[in-house]
Structure formats: structure tokens, C-alpha cells
Simulated scan of single mutants.
Amino acid sequence: MKNQQLMIIIYVILVVFSIMYATQPLQPLLAKEFNINMVQASQFTAVIMFSLAIAPIIYGYILESICPKKMLFVASLILLVTNLVLSYSNSYEMFLTIRVIESLVIPAIITSCMSILANSDKKNVKYNMAIYVAATVFGGMVGRVISGFIATEFGWRAVFISLSIALFFALFFIKKLSFEGDTNLTKAKLSDVVEILKDRRFVLIYSLMFTTFFVFAGLLNILPFRMKELIPNATESQIGLLYLGYGMGIVVSLLSKKIIKLLKTESNTILVGALIFTLVNFSFFSDNMIFVFFMLFVFCIGMFTIHSVSTGIANSIKESQKSLTSGMYLTFYYIGGAVGSVVPAIFYQLVGWNFTIILFISVLILIYTLFFIYKDDFK
């Protein structure tokens, strides 16, 4: 029964993360369709990132305690309807408004899924969370690759219709979940947040992940426009294939313990990931998209090495208030993604591709140097 529950949650996560990132390879197409610029097209992904950032803080105030199964069903139903409406959008304003509505329900679905995973099988929480991370990564990859393929073959509207069909099946599966418990959500008191941020280790880890995800989300967000710039007749299907390297996140997240053991300490592992992640940015100066495609695999290895280890550190520094420290980690992580989904697009539009890559390399060198200086804090 527990395996069935796990499979249902994995399926829901795959569909939801596919919806989150489905717009990314379609951005040049949507920009043309709605006659908008690169920065406006980037907002379709950024709004969801921003909502995921504030959700861990806001949800505790809106909902004292919730039934995750009920919230999962209702939020998924709303998401199904909004996706169908997206497929009929005929203006930038309408499309963005619907994405804003989606951005409010997606965190509810993710929160519910995590609650069910954490509380339905308490003996295997760590294993379930590793599976959860792998499922989010796989969903992000599938959403980008499949949406590019569907858009090329059947048009961009078919992408959102097909995702709605996938959600329709998810509703049937959610009904089969046996979990009936409530989840008590943490209210983030300002005094507790300030207390946590007085600890330099938290500030370092949060800043590290903010910057890393800023660069990661930023590059993946402007990449479709770069490909269109270099290869004007590139199809959405070809653009979607660029995101196959994202799959390396599954391998890294599942092998993170072995990688830490090999490199002796968590700090060393983060620094090795940081070195890979920074150096690979230099390869993006290349005009050869096939070379860039292969380098994206290395880029993702670096990113997910840092992410998988940093998550563990953020959860282990403080014995108490784990839900608040991990919630704050997610807040900094997704704010980095939201800012990264917009600011690099502005840079790219104003000063071009090469200067944007220089921006990425500069901020990474700064934050990783700081982490190197204070790495002994994590012993």
C-alpha cells in the first residue's frame, strides 16, 4: 500500500513540475505569438518560482492545519482547469494572469505531497525525500523536453491540453490515497527568522543556494533565445532537447551520500560542485550549440551536487525548528530562481549573451570564495 502511495505522489509531482517548466522551451514561440519581448516571456516561469519562494512562509499563516489529501485534490482540480484555459489564451495579459493563478496552487500541491511523504511512512522519510527530489528533477526535465516535442508536432496549445489530461488521471489516483491525517504548518515568527540569520552558517548556505539557483535558472531561461539567435530555424523540439542534461540531477541526488563519502566532507563536496559549476560557464561563450548541449550535462552535475548537499546541511545545523530552517532554505532557493528568471533576460537584452555569462561567472566566484573562506564553520 505504501508503495502505491509513493507511486501516486511521484506521478503528481512529475505532472506538476512538468507544468511549471513547460513554458521554458516555448518562450521564443510565445514571445512571437503574443508579440512580447524576452523579459515578458520569462515571467511565465518567474511567477511560479516567486510563489514557491513565499509559500513556506505564507501558508503557515493562512492554514493552521490542513488535510493534505483534500488540499491536493482541490489544488490539482484548479490546476487542471487553469491549464485548459491556458490553451485558449489569446493575449500576453491573459496567459500571465492564468500563470499567476497557477503559481498560487502549485505550492499547495507540492506542500501536500511533501506532507504525505513525510507522515505516511515515518521509517523511510529520508528515502522518500530522496525519491521526491529525483521526481521533481525528472518532472522538470520531462516537462521541458516533451512540451518542446508536442509544440513542434501539434502546436503550443496542445502542450497545455495534454498536461490537463495528465492531471485528470492524477485526480483519480489522489482519490485512492489512504492518507487522512492533518499537517500542522509552521508560523514563521520574525524573531525566529532573525535568530536563524544571526548564524553565519545559515547566511552562507542560503546565499550560496540563492546565487547558484540564480545562475542555473537564469541560463536555462535565456538558452532558448540564444539557440534561436544562433539557429533561427531551430524547432521547439530541438530547444526542448537542450534540457536533457537536467536528468543528471536524478543521478546526483540519489548518489549524494556516496559522493560526500568519496570527497570526505560536505564542504569539500560543495566546493568541488562549485568549481565544476563555475568553470563550465566558460564553455557557454561558444557558438556551437552541440558543444553547449553536452556541457549542460556537466552544468547540471555541478548544480545538483551543490543543491543536494546544501539541503542536508540546512536541515542539520540546528536541531530544533527544522521545518522553519528548511522552509527558509526553499525561500532563498526559489527567490534566486525567480530573480534568475528575469534579471539575466534583461541583461541579455541590453548587453548581449557574453556579458550575461560574465555576470554569472562573477557572482559565482564571489559567493564560492566566501564559502571557501568560512568552510571550517561547517565542521
Rank of each mutant, 00 (worst) to 15 (best):
E195F: 05
I58T: 03
I205S: 04
M49A: 05
F17Y: 14
S191K: 11
S341E: 02
S103W: 01
D182W: 00
L370Y: 00
V351G: 00
M141Y: 07
G148F: 06
Y132V: 04
I98M: 13
L26W: 04
F304N: 15
L96F: 10
L14R: 09
T186H: 07
V39Q: 14
N221G: 11
V159C: 00
V252Q: 08
T82M: 13
F360N: 12
S147N: 00
Y59N: 15
Q27T: 15
T325S: 11
K126Q: 14
L204Q: 05
C113T: 13
Y246D: 09
I9W: 05
S286N: 06
M303C: 11
V280F: 06
V280E: 12
F291Y: 08
P25N: 04
I58F: 00
K123A: 11
V193W: 01
E319N: 10
S178K: 12
N221A: 07
I260V: 15
I174W: 14
F138P: 02
K123D: 14
N128D: 00
M295A: 14
F216N: 13
A170G: 02
F277V: 04
R226M: 06
T311S: 13
L163Q: 13
N119M: 11
I19W: 00
V309F: 03
I317F: 07
A41E: 14
I346A: 13
Y348Q: 05
V203K: 07
F378Q: 04
L204W: 00
G60Q: 02
S308Q: 03
Y21G: 05
M7E: 03
L190P: 06
S310F: 09
K126E: 14
V105H: 08
F378P: 02
I222M: 15
I365D: 10
G312H: 11
N35C: 02
F297I: 13
F371C: 06
L14W: 03
P28Q: 04
Y329I: 15
V351F: 12
K175H: 14
M7Q: 08
T45M: 12
L279I: 13
L241P: 07
A234Q: 08
P107K: 10
F34R: 01
P344M: 00
Y329N: 14
D192V: 06
L208Q: 06
F282M: 11
K379L: 15
K69P: 08
V74Y: 12
G148L: 06
G148E: 09
F50N: 07
N119W: 08
V142N: 03
I165R: 07
G181R: 08
T82N: 08
A345N: 14
E229M: 09
V351H: 00
T45H: 01
L29N: 14
I313N: 10
I260K: 03
I109F: 03
F294D: 04
N268T: 07
N128T: 01
I10D: 02
T111F: 13
L79R: 01
M328T: 01
